[in-house]
Every structure is written in C-alpha cells, then in structure tokens.
Design a protein around this nucleic acid. Structure first.
Length: 507
RNA sequence: GAGCCGGUAGCUCAGCCGGUAGAGCAGCGGCCUUUUAAGCCGUUGGUCCUGGGUUCGACCCCCAGCCGGCUCACCA
C-alpha cells in the first residue's frame, strides 16, 4: 500500500491519490485500463439461489465458473479475506469473496478503490451466513476510476442535490439504479407505441427539424443559422405541417416520434426540447382517434406498468377504456354553476370581470371572445380537477386554428383533448383541409403577430399549395411522450424522464 | 416574472442569544480467514454560495446578487 499522501482527503487529493495509484499500476507493468477480460455472464444471470449452492469448502472441482464485471461499490477487508460487491448493468449485485489462498487475486485488492470497474472469475458458493458469493480465483482491475463517486455507494447517503443529479446523470445512474429503470420503461413505452402504430399500417417517417417557416403550433421557436445558405432557420415546434403534406401525397396513415423545440419557460412540466408523437389518418375523424387513443393508453399502461390501473404520485388512475367524454361547456357548467355558459355576451362579461378581480388587467383590456372566455374558465377551474382520463370535446373554434369546423354547430371544432391527473396528454382534431380557409387563418396569425403576439405561426405558402392539391379528410393527434413517461413511471418532474434536461450553465 | 424555502467537509446534515466550525458516512494509515450499511485504533479534510454593510467580533443580523427547489403567473 502506498503511504498516506498529505492531501488525500479533499476531492482534489482523492483524485490525485487515485491518479497516482493508476501510475503505480502501470509502472509495475499492469494496465489500469485493461481490455482483455472476457465476461461470460451478466451479473444478473449468475445463479444466486443459496439453496442450490455448496458451502465454500465443498465447491466441486468441476463447478461452473463465471466471469463477471461491474462497478465496485463496497469492499470489506477482513485481514486475510475480503468481501466485495459489484453491481451490474441492471442494478443487480454480486458478492465476491477474495481470500489469501488465491494470492494473485488477493494481491489485486490493493489496486482497487470504490468506483473502479472490476472483473472477477470463479464458482459460486454459500457463505457461512448463508449469502451467495463468488469464490474469486481471478480478480482484475478493468478501469481505474480517478474520480471518486459522491455519496451513496452501498450504505452511504443518497445524493439529494437534484441539480447535480441532472447535471451529472452518469453519477446519478450509478448511485440510483432505479433511475435507469425509469428510462428502461420510457424505452419500452416508445417501442410499444411504434409497434401499436406499425400494426395498424401507419408509416413512420422523419421530417425536417430545420424549417424556413415556423408553424404547426402556437409557440416561440429557436432560431439557428445556415452558413452556406446564409439564412436563419427555425427549429421545429411541431411535426404537424410536414405530416399533413405527406397525407396530401397519399401516405394515408403516417406518424412521427421525434424531438420538438420550444423557446419558452422551463418548469416541472416543460423542457425546451421534448418528444412528441403526432399521427395522422386519412378518412378518419377525431371520434375515431378517441377510440384509438383509449386503446393506445390502455396498452401502454399494461405493457409498461403491468396493469391499466396505475398510481401517479399517490393517486390511483384507471387507464382502462373507455374514457369519460365531456363537452367543454358541460365541464365548465359542472364546476361553475353560476357561469352563463350558453350566453356568449354574458360569459365574456363574466370572465372579463373575473380577470379584473384577479388583477390581470393586461388580459382584461383585450376584447374577450366567447371561445377564449370559455377556454379560460375551463383551464382555470376544470383542467386540474380531471384526474381520471377525460376527453374534453367541442372546443371553441376561436382557440382551434387548425381544426375543422363542426358541420352542425359552427361555434365548435371537431376536436378533443385528453386530460389525466389534471394535465393535457393529447390534442387531436379533424384537420382543416380547405385551402381557402387555411390561407385566411394563416393571415389572421400573421396579423396577430404584427399586433404583438409572440406565439403565432408564419404564413406557409407551400403548405397552402399542398392543400390546394387536395388533402383527404383527415384526423390527426399529438401526444407528449415525456408527460406520458412521467405518468407511467410515476415521476413528478419532466426532468426525471429526460436524461439530460436543460439547466442553467454550471457556475 | 412574483412569493416562500434552501445553499456549511466528497455525501447527508447539525451549528442556541453574534464569540473565529462539528457529527455520521467516505477518504487515508493500521488490526482482523465468512462480512452483510462489519467492527476497532489512529488520521486528513472548510472560499460556511458571492459581494457589500452593521459590530470589538458575523455561518448567524441587514442589503444586493448568483444558484436550486416548491407554489403561482406565463406557456398547448
């Protein structure tokens, strides 16, 4: 063992100590970053059922040997014998028993420090206190960890500082194997979603992320610059318009799972880049999509959580189809019996007064139309109460610029949103496919922008041209994958389901 | 953007009424041939978030700022 270095206690000292250790190993002809150790078994696959394991003295000479590797998380040295714990990639642990009777392996102990990547080979047995362990006949340092792990290894304190957990996700994953489980579930969620749509004949596509025209949703975009073209480009805020172009082109069922970027605030539910799925189906209506959505959510819950009955932050949520369907007016009526839901002028006045009361003078100053008034009441008083899956239908046309107008009641759009645990999970509608109407709606967006509105679309002439070629009657839907992952993995923050969430710069 | 809470050793935290900083864990040295978050002996380690101010004296009180969390607002 090397002598005590003066500065071996603070972080820099520990790093220096470990660096020196690696140098020593190299000077002895060893390799602190060896790459010649062959693993035969994942740690998870090594038998550990003590009932079938012999005591150490009774290990058969032809007992199966296992070569495993993993991160060293604990080392109890007891004189001429030592117990080490390695953790494998699924969070499973294996206990290594190293004794002086295997001198090469035993000598390796003094090269090892917590956090190192270690390989071991030997047969399994049952220790005196009845735990599975490997009689380590070969012990190898595979990777020297120069930087010590913070906090919890085995038995230490959890690292609770969420900032450093998000910032240094690699450390988070080492210290908290359950974090990896969240992302495994997320992966299953995505792959099962693909399977769901593939089975139904949808074509998965990848459309552009760099756009010359901002559109498809109401949000502020990121801008970037293309040098060769010497022009600014937008990062997409939705996949909507390109997918509808493909519907025009005759791909009748199409979907895209991909990253979207919105240059807006960050909080527990918003990250500047996030993943959505949008899917479009020709000759379908938003009513067809409600059925499809029920099937999708029920299936995803069953596959990812093992049941369509899930729990989110202590609240039981049933994702068993069918989901409740309520019109926005009925939902507002139930929550606010006094609101004159069916009296447009009265409702506008009602909401305007309410806004004055709550000091939103800036909003109150603008003319409030019926659709915005109703939507305001819904968002303020109903949305957060919708715990069990609920389709809200009959959206006001004023807040649905891309939706098809209802044939029977022109005040409303053929649209729904799905709410669960008080939050929006899906937004779907029968698509507007009248190019003349679409041009008019782009025009009003452009006017709104000129009037100071931030989150508006640009006029997309090519999209209008596409619609002029004829887009079949189509229904489309968007679902936020991150929020769905939060629901199905029971995580309170979107940052818990995004591996590298956006953070302020490290100071 | 507003309000509340927080920032002290590598990690988790304590630190009274203002008197120049502590524990557990980890680290380092030593002992131990079956440990189980091992134990025992010894030991290193601090820009108390930053910058001002009050004070004989500030981790503590005041002001400003930075960072984080929560709530609200904004935002499909």
């Amino acid at each position: 063992m090397s002598k005590a270095p003066e500065e071996s206690s603070d972080l820099d000292g520990q790093i220096a100590f470990r660096t020196r250790k690696a140098e020593e190993i190299r000077e002895r002809g060893g390799n602190p970053y060896a790459n010649d150790f062959r693993v035969t078994h994942a740690i998870a696959d090594v038998p550990r059922d003590v009932a079938n394991l012999p005591n150490e003295p009774e290990i058969a000479t032809d007992a199966p040997h296992y070569s495993v590797a993993g991160r060293l998380l604990q080392c109890n040295e007891k004189g001429k014998v030592a117990f080490l714990f390695l953790r494998g990639d699924r969070g499973e642990m294996i206990q290594l028993f190293v004794k002086i009777d295997y001198p090469a392996a035993f000598a390796t102990l003094k090269d090892l420090q917590l956090g190192d990547i270690v390989g071991a080979r030997g047969p399994m047995f049952k220790t005196r206190i009845g735990k599975a362990a490997m009689r380590t006949e070969e012990l190898r340092l595979l990777t020297k960890a120069i930087r010590p792990l913070p906090g919890k290894l085995l038995g230490g304190q959890d690292v609770k500082d969420v900032e450093s957990r998000y910032r240094q996700r690699y450390v988070d994953l080492i210290s908290h194997p359950e974090v990896a489980d969240v992302f495994r579930k997320r992966a299953r969620l995505v792959s099962e979603t693909r399977r769901f749509f593939d089975e139904r004949g949808y074509v998965e596509v990848e459309t552009r992320m760099l756009l010359q025209t901002n559109g498809g949703a109401a949000a502020r975009p990121f801008t970037t610059h293309h040098n060769a073209l010497d022009m600014d480009l937008f990062l997409r805020i939705a996949t909507e318009l390109d997918l509808k172009r493909l519907i025009v082109g005759g791909i009748d069922r199409v979907y895209e799972i991909g990253r979207i970027f919105r240059n807006e605030g960050m909080d527990r539910f918003h990250n500047p880049e996030f993943t959505s799925i949008e899917f479009y189906q020709a000759y379908a209506t938003y009513e067809d999509l409600m059925v499809l959505t029920e099937q999708l959510f029920e299936r995803l819950a069953t596959v990812v959580c093992g049941s369509s009955e899930v729990v989110y932050q202590g609240q039981p949520v049933s994702l068993s189809a069918p989901f409740r369907r309520v019109t926005m007016r009925d939902a507002v009526r139930a929550a606010l019996p006094d609101a004159p839901v069916d009296d447009p002028a009265g409702l506008c006045r009602h909401v305007t007064e309410k806004l004055h009361e709550t000091l939103h003078a800036d909003h109150a100053g603008t003319a409030m139309d019926y659709g915005h008034a109703l939507t305001h009441l819904f968002e303020a008083h109903v949305e957060s109460t919708l715990i069990q899956p609920t389709f809200i239908i009959e959206y006001p046309i004023e807040v649905s610029p891309l939706s098809r107008r209802n044939d029977r009641d022109p005040r409303f759009a053929d649209r729904f949103e799905l709410f669960i645990v008080g939050r929006e999970f899906a937004n779907a509608f029968s698509e507007l496919n009248d190019p003349v109407d679409q041009r008019a709606r782009f025009r009003s967006q452009v006017e709104a922008k000129a009037g100071g509105a931030d989150e508006t679309m640009d006029h997309d002439e090519d999209f209008c041209r596409a619609l002029e070629h004829g887009m079949p009657p189509t229904a489309g839907e968007g679902i936020g994958i991150d929020r769905l992952a939060m629901l199905l993995t029971d995580q309170p923050s979107i940052r818990d389901v995004i591996l590298f969430p956006q953070l302020r710069p490290e100071v």
